[in-house]
């Protein structure tokens, strides 16, 4: 971007050594700082590959964690739990998030619009653990720990992310497309559902994937909602495990075997999250 002007540095006069030195020093420091910023990501990834890859085998996907102190086992309970809860969370996240996005973008003159936008923005910054406390008081106090409660907490966390991306993508759909639909005599709701939404579908899917990648790694809101379960559980009204929960328990456990599973789980989780964000990014690039 700056290549055209980069060579335009003083042509006639020579640069004083002090200024030249300062310029080079700051350039070097900026490069060094960038390396420092990127280093943890690379270190974490290679650490997890070194420590966790060995534990990823068939057992890892098909068995539940061995009792503390024994060897073997896998994280099947956590993988299944995560899949179930993320699917249920997406229902809340997509339904409310996309509707919210439609509301903000298609009804800009509605008196409630500024309130919804502000609250959605603010909700996006609420710590996940606090959302866990809210769902605990709302659901768990009466019905006990359950996969439903965990999904609800994750869904609430997804909502504002989906709202924001949906609104942004819908605004990219040209106004003329809407007018063309209305000119054909289509009512506004059909224009929105059949013309505007399909035109923005790619972007919305990207937003949902990014939101999923965000909440897939959350353990904090699940601590007091889904709680965890050392057995495979397909009943969402019972306590349910999740990958980040198992990683948390394993990493803070005193047993080598649990720690080993936690590292393998972390490797799996981080790989899935990176792939999802990579795919989402690719998709939005092409747009």
């Amino acid at each position: 971007m700056t290549t055209s002007v980069r060579t335009a540095a003083p042509a006639g006069r020579t640069l004083s050594p002090a200024r030249r030195f300062q310029n080079m020093l700051m350039g070097g420091l900026i490069l060094l700082a960038t390396l420092l910023v990127v280093a943890p990501l690379i270190l974490i990834f290679f650490y997890l590959i070194r420590e966790g890859l060995g534990a990823i085998n068939l057992d890892f996907f098909t068995k539940v964690p061995a009792p503390e102190g024994e060897t073997g086992g896998g994280l099947a309970n956590a993988i299944l739990g995560s899949v179930q809860m993320l699917a249920m969370a997406s229902v809340i996240g997509v339904l409310v998030g996309v509707s919210g996005g439609i509301f903000l973008s298609e009804y800009p003159r509605h008196p409630l619009m500024p309130t919804v936008r502000m609250i959605s923005d603010v909700l996006a910054g609420i710590p996940a653990i606090v959302m866990g406390l809210v769902v605990y008081s709302l659901i768990v106090l009466q019905f006990g720990f359950s996969g439903f409660a965990g999904s609800m907490a994750l869904g609430f966390l997804m909502m504002p992310i989906v709202v924001r991306t949906t609104e942004e993508v819908l605004k990219l759909v040209p106004q003329t497309v809407r007018e063309a639909g209305l000119a054909l005599g289509l009512p506004k709701w059909l224009v929105t559902l059949r013309i505007v939404l399909p035109a923005a579908a790619g972007g919305i899917v990207t937003g949902v994937m990014l939101a999923l990648a965000r909440v897939a790694g959350e353990a904090a809101p699940l601590l007091f909602t889904a709680f965890g379960n050392s057995a495979i559980n397909l009943d969402p009204s019972k306590p349910m495990s999740a990958l980040p929960l198992e990683i948390y328990r394993g990493a803070t456990s005193a047993y080598d075997e649990n720690q080993r599973l936690a590292k393998a789980g972390a490797l799996l989780l981080i790989t899935l999250i990176f792939l999802t964000s990579l795919l989402a990014r690719r998709a939005s690039r092409r747009k």
Binding site: A213, R214, G217, A219, A220, I247, A251, A266, L269, I270
Partner: peptide, 11 residues
């Protein structure tokens, strides 16, 4: 920003 909190904690 995409690395989960637990993974940072573990590391």
């Amino acid at each position: 920003a995409a690395v989960p909190s637990v993974v940072y904690g573990l590391w």
